[in-house]
């Protein structure tokens, strides 16, 4: 066993990269759920973003364009869900699952020509002196733009929900859509916008996988990351800051268990492999045992069908 081989600084930097796809998808889903909509199609939107972004980056040679198209692609797919659940008032759980099924198939279909292709790389920003600061430099200033973007998004979503009037309206719609409607807010439109934002974030997260973290296109390459993102939103009890905590906790344990294996720690591999899930559950139990405030934080209209009857 060789714990000395694990460098905490390097580990911290790695876990940020490993957590970014689920963080992006989860922060988007947070906004969707805050508006009172439960979209279980995150996996389908992520994988669609992964292939759309990959294909455009390869065709144009521009990863930036790839990321933008991935967001557009994720948003477009999410609007199928949006129209079905908001306009045609279909069941959200089932429609979300159908979206995942469709996204997995659709992405594989358009990805057929992109197996074994190497995508262009997105240049890392050179932060010069900052990156040379011991410890902090490696942890904070050695990343690619998307990692910073994901952190900025968390702050932006937090500020949006907490301080802006639009954020207040969004939350009101999620808490009680009938009351919000009575006050004259366009419930359906607001929710469609939230759903599209969630789709764009999921698409971006997927493209981060296919363009940066792996980088490669293979069918089904998200391998369940969308489901983890959904779990993280619940874990966070619908708070932006805790989405960050949850994503980094999950990604951190996932990276740590691989490091422990490489260091030769004598713990059964299957237990290590299950540890990210177990640790997430245990931490949530500890948090929610605290007077159960978590449950109160769930948007009251989450998953309920809205119909403007008056």
């Amino acid at each position: 066993m060789d714990f000395g081989a694990i460098n905490p600084t390097v580990l911290a930097a790695s876990l940020m990269v490993a957590s970014t796809p689920i963080l992006l998808a989860a922060i988007g889903e947070l906004v969707v759920e805050k508006s009172g909509v439960l979209n279980l199609g995150v996996e389908g939107m992520m994988i669609t973003g992964a292939i759309v972004g990959f294909a455009i980056a390869v065709e144009t040679g521009s990863p930036a364009l790839g990321f933008l198209t991935a967001m557009a692609g994720g948003a477009a797919l999410s609007l199928i869900f949006g129209v079905l659940t908001q306009v045609l008032m279909s069941n959200q759980v089932a429609t979300g699952l159908a979206l995942t099924l469709f996204g997995l198939g659709f992405s594989a279909l358009i990805g057929q020509g992109y197996v074994g292709v190497k995508p262009p790389a997105l240049a890392k920003p050179d932060l010069g002196l900052l990156a040379d600061i011991p410890v902090l430099g490696r942890v904070l200033f050695s990343h690619d733009l998307i990692v910073y973007l994901s952190l900025a998004l968390v702050v932006a979503v937090w500020a949006f929900l907490r301080f802006t009037r639009a954020g207040l309206i969004l939350r009101a719609v999620g808490e009680n859509h009938d009351a919000a409607h009575a006050l004259g807010y366009k419930v359906v439109r607001i929710r469609l916008a939230a759903i599209a934002f969630g789709g764009a974030c999921a698409g971006l997260g997927g493209a981060y996988l296919s363009l940066m973290r792996v980088p490669q296109w293979t069918e089904g390459m998200t391998a369940g990351a969308g489901w983890i993102a959904l779990a993280i939103v619940v874990f966070a009890s619908w708070r932006a800051g805790r989405v960050l905590l949850g994503a980094y906790l999950f990604g951190g344990v996932a990276v740590l268990q691989l490091n422990l294996q490489a260091a030769g720690v004598a713990v059964p591999v299957e237990l290590l492999s299950a540890s990210p899930y177990l640790v997430t559950i245990i931490v949530l139990v500890i948090i929610s045992a605290d007077r159960g405030r978590a449950a109160l934080n769930a948007p009251a209209s989450l998953g309920r069908v809205f119909h403007a009857s008056s």
Binding site: D2, A5, I6, N7, V10, L11, S14, V17, A18, P21, L209, R213, V214, Q216, T218, G220, M221, T222, A223, G224, A225, A254, V255, L258, N259, Q261, A262, A263, V269, E270, S273
Partner: peptide
């Protein structure tokens, strides 16, 4: 412990490289 998870393979490679 998976047949197929490219992201996990990426993390595993990174962990190995970081450990020398």
């Amino acid at each position: 412990y998976t047949w197929f998870d490219p992201a996990k393979e990426a993390d595993a490679a990174t962990a190995l490289i970081e450990q020398g």
